[in-house]
Structures are given as structure tokens and as C-alpha cells.
Amino acid sequence: MTGKIFDFKLVFTQIPDLLKYLPITMELAIASTVFGMLLGLLIAIIKIKKVKVLDKLATFYVSLVRGTPVLVQLYIAYFGVPMLLKYINQQTGSDLKVAAIPGFVYAVLALGFNQSAFDAEVFRAALLSVDKGQHEAAAAIGMTGWQSLRRIIIPEALSVALPSLGNSFINAIKGTSLAFTCAVVEMTAEGKILSGRNYRYFEVYVSLAIIYWAITILFEKILKFVEKKISIPEQVEQISPEELESLRSPKSKAKAYAANHKRLGGELAWQKNRGLS
């Protein structure tokens, strides 16, 4: 162990080695976020609809998950699931292979459960924030509950929920650094391995910090962009007579649309999607 106290160059030169494991980190983050959001949405709907028994269960689950550290949850998944399988094998004489389950699955489950509790509250608040009049208007024109949820309520709730869901995703990215507990080698685990070889612990963690930070900033930017994209525009100009004409007669649509497409609101953008512009 000779040389510099702090190897500044190494901080940057080893970044590419660490980035090789970025795909695993992102897969973990995306898979656990998708799983967590779906479960969270389900829990939110159960709680809002006050489904018998299930809503009590959901409340208990959310409280449990929120009240325990992720690290502990990961260990419980890692040690608990094999035990559960063993028990099932014993009871039913089946032959479920514990070893066949990759560590990745435990990590996604544990990180997903962890997120679901948070997302459930986010979805619940967002769904409840949609004005009752929106439900009634949809019902009054004959839309079914499902149609109104899908076409009216969820899009409105999503705008409200998006910032928090984005945060949840960013937390998930950082949370994946704990996946080593389930024997998954992602970026941080690879860092540990690298530093075990060259003893440059501090440098490796600084490299990791830089990478996580950069990714977080990137996703914050993407999030801002998406938020803006799905929000209602601040201002819309009145439709000009030509634009109106183009709406009325499909043939002249294309021309006028191309000329004016920046000025038009949502429905009109549809023409573009259909390749008419």
C-alpha cells in the first residue's frame, strides 16, 4: 500500500468498471418500482373502496412495511422465502428448488414491497384529490366505473401523484445499493469487490457517489419534463378560422395542421399521432 493518500485519478478511471453494473442496478430499480406501484395502486383502491377484511389487512401491511428498515426487509426476504419453500416442500411433498430462485428476485420483491407501502399512500391521496364532480359527470353520460377510472380519474390522479412517484423511483435506485444482502452484484456490490482488491475503499465510494448523484439528477430532469408534458398547458390560443376548417374537413386537415400545430391543444395533437401532419 504505497503511494498517494487519495488517488484522485482513480475516482474517475474506475467509473467505467462500475458502470458495467449499472444495468443491473437499473433493472432492480425499474422492476421493483413497477411491482411496488402496481401493488400500491391495488392497495390504494382496496382502501378507497373499503373492501371488507382486505382493507384492514392493507392497513396492517402498510404500517408494518413503513415501520421496518429496508435492510431488515431484504434479509427477511432472503432468509424467509427459502424457509417458506422448505415448509411447503415438507407439507406437500413438492420439490421446489430454493437454489433455483436468483437473488435478484428476493431483492425485487423486498424493494418492491418497501415501495408499495409508500406508493399506496401516494395513490390514495391522489385518487381522493380528484373532484367528486368528475366521477359524477362521467357516470351521468353513461360511462362505466372502469371507463371513468381509466379515462378520467387515473389521468387526473397521475398528475397529482407523479412528483411523489418520481421520488419513490429515485429512492428505489438508491435502495438497490442494499441488494448485496440478497447476493446480487449490482453497482455498489461491484464497488465493494473492486476495493477489496485494490484497498481504495474511499475512492470507490466517491466514484459510486458521483454515479448515483448523476443518475438522480438525470431522472429528476426527466421527471420534470414528463410532469410538464402531462400537465395542462398554461395558455392556449383561440383556434383560427383555418384551423377550424381543417378540423371540420379531414382533407385539408394535414396542411393547416402542419402550419399551426404548435398552437393546438390535446385533441388536435391526435392528428399528428395519426401521421396527418
Binding site: G133, E136, R151, E267
Partner: peptide, 16 residues
């Protein structure tokens, strides 16, 4: 009124 907030006037009328 209860117009659908995330839809334009035209989309509101088209929805049903």
C-alpha cells in the same frame, strides 16, 4: 359544470 379537467372543450364533448 364538472367538465373533465384534463380534456379540452372538444375532447369533453367527444368523450361520451
Amino acid at each position: 359544470f364538472n367538465l373533465f379537467q384534463k380534456k379540452t372543450a372538444l375532447e369533453n364533448v367527444m368523450e361520451g
